[in-house]
Design a protein around this nucleic acid. Structure first.
Lengths: 363, 363
DNA sequence: TAGTTGTTTGAAAAAACTTTCAAAATCCCT
DNA sequence: AGGGATTTTGAAAGTTTTTTCAAACAACTA
């Protein structure tokens, strides 16, 4: 049986007090180089492993972060989670994974647990619009950051950092692309009403419609929940309409894949019968046989920035008070589900400049 | 500023000792019902939140598990991770996520960290064949379980629990399916040599070949690493051969998707020119436009069983000494990449019985 | 009433570490 | 050699909780 050895064991062998051992181990001053080396070598020899929980108890720091996410199965979140986990370990933190299935009360329990376990901060990747848990944390000034989804609550806006894409621009780009390809009846499948990103993408889409002078038909806006199944169902709904849209913008690739399934099942072709554009650019969107045109966003980088901001907040403490907001630029990724390639256009630069192209490509 | 309140604060207000408060909070005996209720109500009113790290210090239990995984981005692992996370929380544990990118020394650092943080156990989803870190843990009898990949090291086999699929059977099923459809030149893309599952699947494939009296050609066995890119590259390699295989079995769907890309790029059709079968049945394999025939395994359940076994080991302690090994049954899932549907067979039951079907379907 | 039993409570120790403060040791200068 | 300054070390307290042991208290029996 391996007995765990602690700072006192080392002290006894090195013939010093455990205080001195602590100083040696933590590379503190007020210790002679010689004694430090001796202690270090003994520690190494004994295979000493520091007990972080004892340390945490006195330091009130665990170097552990919570990650609350709806569901890792969603490919968008797994890429995000990767960025988060990687940069957390780079910065010396580990992360506790919490998947809430979007349930506010599950989220609350997770938060309770995380705080009892003494995490130094939490990153939320899927905040609800009016998430009371997040508001409470913000009021208490507990270190958190929001990534991807945000909350419009004033105290959250004032106090907590946020990273995301410019979803309004993204939505605009998506619908604009459809419009430029000649579509006038454009169906939009939004995210759930609890998600800021869905709303913002929808808003961007509507903006494109009005910029190009197209009618906004209410029956062409359907609410989804970002999941494949919901894309499938909303897609079917569109396809049953008397005057069905000629193009569909789904607020996530995952949903777009569901729409794809629905369209194909009805015996329709993509993009000839109905064009399809998604959002996120998950890995599978680029697969042969799918080749979904979509709005790309830097998911890994988003996660990385989120934890960098959080760690800065934790370590810098109260120094910076105002909340930062960083918005990454979305990017139109043209593949084959909108028919761009069929019309023989050459791929142009897709940087997010204001709409200048004359609608010559219509019809 | 919210000051954290502790057991002593409650004691002061309730006019009892903190010992008594502890008893009330933990629902222990040796306390009068009346005092207990009083204490509980005070605790609630003050918003008391137990400090798990102090508790952990004395109890030597953290109710936290480590999950070491190569990479959450691989869809197979995300489904597995879901099963793990969900049942961990169900059993009152939280999990710290560690993605090693298959690097042994990164893994070692993660293990050090996890142990310093006092996790009660670790689940390894991607053990290397001769992983020294795992051997060391096993020798020390630190609670771990292996899921998916295993190690053939004798002390690990003797001491640590394992859950996985019957990969040999799975490989057999895959290649058998190809053989029954008339293929005689079957290329296999294995996993990396460090992975037990790749080896076992290959072994199963070879077994099918010999069972049906087919030649085993060494140039038809290529080593991959389970990732899409490696499937693409190995696929290309096969397609450049003078006598290219008429069917390919890839040891993971993720690789099969890469192979798919390679085949399509070469202007060949699936399954008419070359048939393709994968392993894992990840969610995207069932997508329209892909419809990959594959070997299914219960990933979520596998994860669930892994943590159940681990928790049992942790909580039961030394009571059960011999290591359990649970092997789930793989299942042939026939979709469209092997051409089964083209031949007008009706879908038969695919339970893993010994090969009885006469090879009437050949040619 | 004394003695026994059983229940309820609290003091103190323990877990493994960091930090503060004071004491001891060393060094330098006159 | 003596005194001040500086460096090195250790004792003790603190972090929050659980647990052991003993004390106090109530109730019951003889």
């Amino acid at each position: 049986m391996y007995k765990k050895i602690n700072i006192k064991d080392i002290a006894r062998i090195a013939q010093v007090s455990h205080t001195t051992v602590s100083r040696a181990l933590n590379d503190k001053s007020r210790i002679r180089q010689e004694t430090k080396e001796k202690i270090l070598s003994i520690a190494k020899e004994l295979g000493y492993r520091p007990n972080f929980i004892a340390r945490s108890l006195v330091l009130k720091r665990t170097r552990t972060l919570g990650l609350v996410i709806t569901n890792i199965a969603n490919p968008f979140y797994t890429e995000l989670a990767q960025g988060i986990e990687k940069t957390a370990t780079k910065l010396g933190y580990s992360i506790i994974l919490c998947s809430t299935q979007s349930d506010i009360s599950t989220e609350k329990q997770y938060i309770e647990m995380l705080r009892s376990k003494g995490v130094d901060g939490i990153v939320f990747s899927s905040a609800h619009m009016e998430d009371p848990n997040i508001v409470a944390l913000a009021e208490e000034e507990f270190p958190i950051t929001l990534v991807n989804r945000r909350t419009y609550h004033p105290v959250v806006k004032e106090k907590v950092n946020y990273v995301g894409v410019d979803n309004i621009l993204g939505g605009f780009l998506a619908v604009e692309h459809l419009i430029r390809l000649g579509h006038e009846r454009i169906g939009v499948i939004g995210g759930s009403a609890e998600s800021s990103v869905g709303l913002e993408r929808l808003e961007g889409g509507k903006k494109a419609l009005s910029t190009y002078g197209l009618e906004q038909r209410n029956d062409y806006f359907l609410e989804g929940n970002f999941l494949k199944k919901s894309g499938y169902e909303r897609g079917k709904q569109f396809l049953k309409m008397a005057e069905l849209p000629t193009a569909i913008f789904a607020a996530s690739d995952y949903m777009a894949l569901g729409v794809c399934q629905a369209i194909l099942e009805e015996g329709l072709r993509i993009p000839e019968d109905v064009a399809l554009i998604g959002f996120n650019d998950i890995e599978f969107s680029s697969m042969q046989g799918i080749e979904l045109t979509t709005i790309g966003q830097k998911k890994f980088e988003m996660g990385a920035i989120a934890v960098e901001m959080l760690v800065e907040k934790i370590e810098k403490g109260e120094e910076r008070t105002s909340a930062k907001e960083v918005l990454l630029m979305p990017e139109l990724i043209i593949r084959k589900t909108c028919g761009f390639h069929l019309k023989g256009y050459q791929i142009e630069s897709t940087n997010p400049s204001p709409p200048t192209l004359s609608p010559e490509g219509r019809g």
